[in-house]
Nucleic acid binder design. Structure first.
Lengths: 107, 107
DNA sequence: ACAACGTATAAGTAACTGCTTATATATTGA
DNA sequence: TCAATATATAAGCAGTTACTTATACGTTGT
């Protein structure tokens, strides 16, 4: 559920990795260049993101290419949707739209 | 920023408290009845929720009445909005709407 | 005034988390 | 075939977190 997503994105490094991965594909060592933590730390963060549906791995020989899965955010978005009723009026139209959308399929 | 919100809601008990507080006002001891943790634990969770704008306290004598502040979720919602571009087409209309909305005012 | 009540704070603890270094596994190029 | 490379896993550690019990603080009814 959305609690796991929140937990995953509640870490600064992991959030930054996810944001990067949504812009383009990165290999683990590429990612490592951009952060102040070791390669194993990056791999561990990628594992967390992958397990909760926020990243996808594409193996190519000894390289592991990762990319973000923003669709993985949808459970969180749907949860948030329950609280829109309390917000200013204009925003309420959003609810209806979201309800019409199909659920996420494959991970 | 939205990372603090995620951290706050990344705990199951705290998330459940928040959800309750969005339905109606509760005193601390009322809340305590509904959870398997002690009164101080509840007070601590309420402190976290309050500090990140997800709850509001109303003092009345020796009673502290808490209620949820779903508007406090808006930074998270706005962050999520950046990722809508990756989702199925219909949803894109949401972005425009959100951008027209005024920012949150008082806490 | 004072005992009971409602809540917050203090202090300690066990579990979790994010990191590290060391090492294992797999793939590639020479 | 073998050394170098890319990544994952293991093990350990320090900091954080969610809880506990004990206690302090303020308010209320008698």
């Amino acid at each position: 559920m959305q609690m796991e997503l929140m937990k995953a994105l509640g870490d600064g490094t992991r959030l930054a990795i996810f944001e990067r991965l949504c812009k383009r594909e990165y290999t683990v060592s590429e990612l490592t260049l951009h952060f102040d933590v070791s390669q194993p730390a990056i791999s561990q963060h990628l594992g967390v993101l992958k397990r909760c549906g926020l990243a996808r791995e594409r193996r190519a020989g000894r390289f592991a290419h990762y990319r973000g899965r923003p669709e993985g955010l949808r459970p969180m978005m749907q949860w948030l949707d329950h609280y829109r009723q309390f917000w200013p009026e204009k925003i309420n139209a959003l609810s209806a739209m979201l309800k019409e959308m199909p659920d996420e399929k494959g991970k």
